[in-house]
Every structure is written in C-alpha cells, then in structure tokens.
C-alpha cells in the first residue's frame, strides 16, 4: 500500500473521527471530570476535587450522625433498571421471534407490507406513543372501562406507576428493534435445513432448538443489544409509566441535574450507565466473535 493510499483512507475517516471526538469523547470527558467535583449551591459544580459524587452512587451519609449506610434508594433503582431492561429484552425476544418468523415466512411480496406495519410506530413521537399506552391502562383508561363495562371487575385495576406499567411501555416501544434484526436473520435462514431436520426424525421442537435457533442466534443477540441498551438508559417511558414510584437510572440522573442539584452524582451515575452499556457490548462481541472462532476451529 502506498503512502497516498493510507492518506486517502485517513481522509475518508476524518469526518467520522471529528464527529465522534467532538460529540462523544469530549462530552464524556467533561462528564467524567464533573463526577469528581463538588456540587454547586444552585446546581452546576464548584471546581474542588471530591469523590463524594462517586461515593453517593452506592452509599449515603446520615446527615445527623455522619454514619455511612448503603443507599437503598440508588441501589434499588440501579437493580430495577438492570432487571427491567433484562425482562424487557426477554419479553421482546418471546414476542419478537414469532413475529419475525411470521413475517419472514410470508410470500416475498407481502413481507414489505408487514415490515411496514412493524415500523409504523417509529414514525410517531416516542412521547405520544408512550402516552397512548398510558391511555390504555389508566384507572379510567380503555382496559379498565371495558372490564368495568363487562362487569368482570367492580373497581378499576391500578396498573399505572408500577414496574408492570414500565415494562409494558418499554416492551411496546422497543419491540420493533428486536423484530428487525431477528427478521433479517430468519430471512437468511435456509429453510431446506429445517426440512432436512424434519426428515431426520426431528420433532418441531428439536428442529427449533438444534437447527433454527443456533442459526438465527446472531440476529437474536443483535436484537437483544438493540433493546437492552436503550432500555437501560430509558427516560421518557419510565417517567410517564413509572412516575416517581418506578424510577429508572435515566430518571435518577435527571433528578440529580434538576431538583437534586447534585451534578457530580448525576455525572457519576451517567458514567456508571455508560460502563454497564459497555459491558453489555463487550459480552456481545465476545459472544459473536467466539462463534466465528469456533467456526474456524
């Protein structure tokens, strides 16, 4: 390769490098620096080094006797964020896989129509979509009215502001992100392999477990990352569906920069979130590249 070639390559990459540096690495650096400063009196930060922000991620100091205790509230939110995101991912797999299967097995001419239906929600603002879900499950929302009207229940069921409500909202919002990559994987799947399996005495379940799932696994993993990562940092959906009762990490961070006036804690929480996402991505690359290695082994 000549020097000019190398130069041209770098020149091609330059815009991307500039954008990533300016809008991703630089702000992350600022956040990292802020997480080691002292909260200002009315928000913002004082330029005094402190590890209190990081300390407060997991612990809290009793303001009266200065004893240190584990911060149940923060840990609760952290754990809830991870657990709700994992459950959301699981539910989207359970619902997304059959959906993707259904679309991928339609005649070619019909597939675009079904994909179009799946992507329609993307055209609508996230806030509007989430409020639509809220409208369904509110105390005087559609479900409760129908159930009351049919006389199945006599008092409205309280569904809003709970983990259930957040899960419902997130599943609804993120489902297409699961369907798309899984659909792509199933579409590439050679159905003659399923036929071969069926011919070799395998039941449908055995075929699914031993032939279909292993071969569409990359799509399921990609979908899981696409759902898990934004779920972990979700803000709008837990805010509307969970309120103050079922907060997630995104809402906690928002709180620190707003009412809480603790920017360093907010910054430390943001870094924590980023690290969690990074871990998920590392797990993902391990899972997929490990597969390739085995393919060559």
């Amino acid at each position: 390769m000549t020097g000019a070639d190398t130069l041209r390559r770098w020149a091609l990459a330059l815009p991307a490098v500039v954008v990533i540096t300016l809008f991703s690495i630089l702000p992350l650096g600022v956040v990292l620096v802020y997480s080691f400063l002292t909260p200002g009196d009315f928000g913002n930060v004082k330029w005094i080094f402190s590890t209190d922000g990081w300390f407060s991620v997991l612990f809290e100091r009793n303001i009266f006797d200065d004893t240190i205790a584990i911060s149940d509230a923060n840990i609760g939110i952290l754990v809830r964020s991870i657990v709700l995101s994992l459950i959301t991912t699981l539910i989207t797999v359970i619902f997304g896989l059959p959906t993707a299967w259904f679309i991928a097995t339609r005649p070619v001419a019909q597939r675009n129509f079904w994909m179009f239906l799946i992507t329609i929600p993307f055209w609508t603002n996230l806030l509007v979509r989430t409020i639509a879900v809220q409208e369904m499950i509110r105390s005087d929302g559609v479900f409760n009215r129908i159930l009351l009207g049919l006389g199945i229940i006599h008092e409205p069921i309280q569904m809003m502001f709970s983990n259930f409500a957040v899960l419902l909202g997130m599943t609804y919002v993120f489902l297409p992100l699961m369907v798309l990559p899984v659909y792509a994987a199933i579409e590439k799947f050679d159905f003659r392999l399923a036929e071969a399996s069926y011919d070799l005495y395998a039941s449908r379940l055995f075929t699914l477990r031993r032939v279909i799932l292993p071969l569409i696994r990359p799509g399921v993993i990609a979908g899981s990352i696409l759902v898990f990562v934004p779920s972990l940092g979700a803000y709008v959906t837990p805010r509307i569906m969970g309120g103050g009762k079922s907060m997630m990490l995104g809402n906690l961070i928002d709180l620190q920069f707003g009412q809480g006036r603790n920017w360093p804690l907010g910054a430390a929480l943001s870094i924590t979130l980023t690290v969690l996402v990074l871990l998920a991505l590392i797990w993902y690359t391990r899972l997929t590249s490990g597969r390739k290695e085995r393919n060559h082994g």
Binding site: E195, Y198, D199, L200, Y201, A202
Partner: peptide, 14 residues
C-alpha cells in the same frame, strides 16, 4: 416426514 422410515439426500446437501 419425521415418522417415515425414509431419508433424503438433498441436491443442495443441506
């Protein structure tokens, strides 16, 4: 097919 004592060698091998 999974109950028939008949097996196939596919053209594409599969």
């Amino acid at each position: 097919p999974n109950q028939r004592p008949v097996n196939t060698v596919f053209q594409s091998y599969a």
